[in-house]
C-alpha cells in the first residue's frame, strides 16, 4: 500500500465538545507525542485534508458545518470520531440540544473512546484509520483517481512507457512541431538578431516573395 506511506493531513472540527478532546488532539501534534514528525499536519483547509477529526456530538446548528467540511474533502477520506461525545453523545447524550454521535450525520470510520480521549488513543485511532484510508484508495473507481496517481500507476504497469501529451498532442506530433519550430526559430533569430543590412535585405526579399 504505497498510499499510506504518504503523510496524511488532518482537519479538526469541534462539534460540541468540552475542549478536553480538542486540546488532546493538539497535544498529539506537540513535542510530547509529536505526530508531526511523521508529517501529519493539522490543516485548516478541508481541501488539503485526508482525515477528518471530529470531537463532540452534533447539534442542529453545526450539522451543516460538519457536512460542508466533509463534502469539501477530496476522496479518499476518513472520519475519526474522537471522544465519547463524538461516538454516542456521552455524558451530554440526554441534553435537549444534542442529536447524538457524529455518525448520525456523516459516516464514521474509526471511533476513539475516552473522556477526554488520551493522545495515545487518538494516535492509535488515526493509525487504524490509515488502513481504512488505504483500503478506500484501493477501491476507488479509476475515473475518480487523480491525474498524478494515474500517471504513477501507468509508470509501474508499462515500465516507463508513458504516452506524454502536451496540449493534447502525442509525442510524435510534438516532435514534428518542435522540428518545425526550430526551423522557424532559426529564421526569426536570423531576422531579428542581425543588425547588418544583409539580414534586413533577406527579410525584405522574403516579404517581397510572399507578395509576389
Amino acid at each position: 500500500m504505497s498510499y499510506v506511506t504518504k503523510s496524511p493531513w488532518i482537519i479538526h472540527y469541534d462539534g460540541s465538545s468540552c475542549n478536553g478532546c480538542d486540546i488532546e488532539v493538539l497535544a498529539c501534534l506537540t513535542p510530547m507525542y509529536d505526530a508531526e514528525r511523521f508529517g501529519i499536519i493539522n490543516t485548516g483547509n478541508p481541501k488539503h485534508a485526508d482525515i477528518f477529526l471530529v470531537t463532540g456530538s452534533v447539534n442542529e446548528q453545526n450539522i451543516s458545518v460538519v457536512k460542508q467540511i466533509y463534502e469539501q474533502m477530496p476522496e479518499p477520506k476518513i472520519v475519526v470520531a474522537v471522544g465519547i461525545c463524538a461516538t454516542s453523545g456521552g455524558i451530554f447524550r440526554e441534553c435537549y440540544n444534542v442529536k447524538g454521535g457524529v455518525d448520525t450525520v456523516i459516516p464514521v470510520d474509526v471511533y476513539v473512546p475516552g473522556c477526554a480521549a488520551r493522545p495515545e488513543a487518538i494516535i492509535d485511532g488515526i493509525v487504524k484509520g490509515l488502513d481504512v484510508l488505504a483500503e478506500k484508495h484501493a477501491n476507488m473507481p479509476k475515473s475518480s483517481v487523480s491525474a498524478s496517481d494515474a500517471a504513477e500507476e501507468k509508470v509501474k504497469d508499462e515500465d516507463m512507457a508513458i504516452e506524454v501529451r502536451y496540449y493534447g498532442k502525442t509525442a510524435e506530433e510534438l516532435d514534428e512541431d518542435i522540428a518545425d519550430e526550430r526551423v522557424s526559430d532559426a529564421q526569426s533569430v536570423k531576422y531579428y538578431s542581425s543588425s547588418d543590412k544583409d539580414a534586413d535585405d533577406s527579410g525584405d526579399k522574403n516579404n517581397g516573395k510572399e507578395e509576389v
Binding site: D14, G15, S16, N59, Q61, N62, V65, C95, Y96, V98
Partner: peptide
C-alpha cells in the same frame, strides 16, 4: 454563537 450549545444546565433534573 451557539455552535456548541449542549444545554447541560438542564441535566440537573436528571
Amino acid at each position: 454563537i451557539g455552535f456548541i450549545h449542549r444545554g447541560l444546565e438542564k441535566l440537573v433534573e436528571k
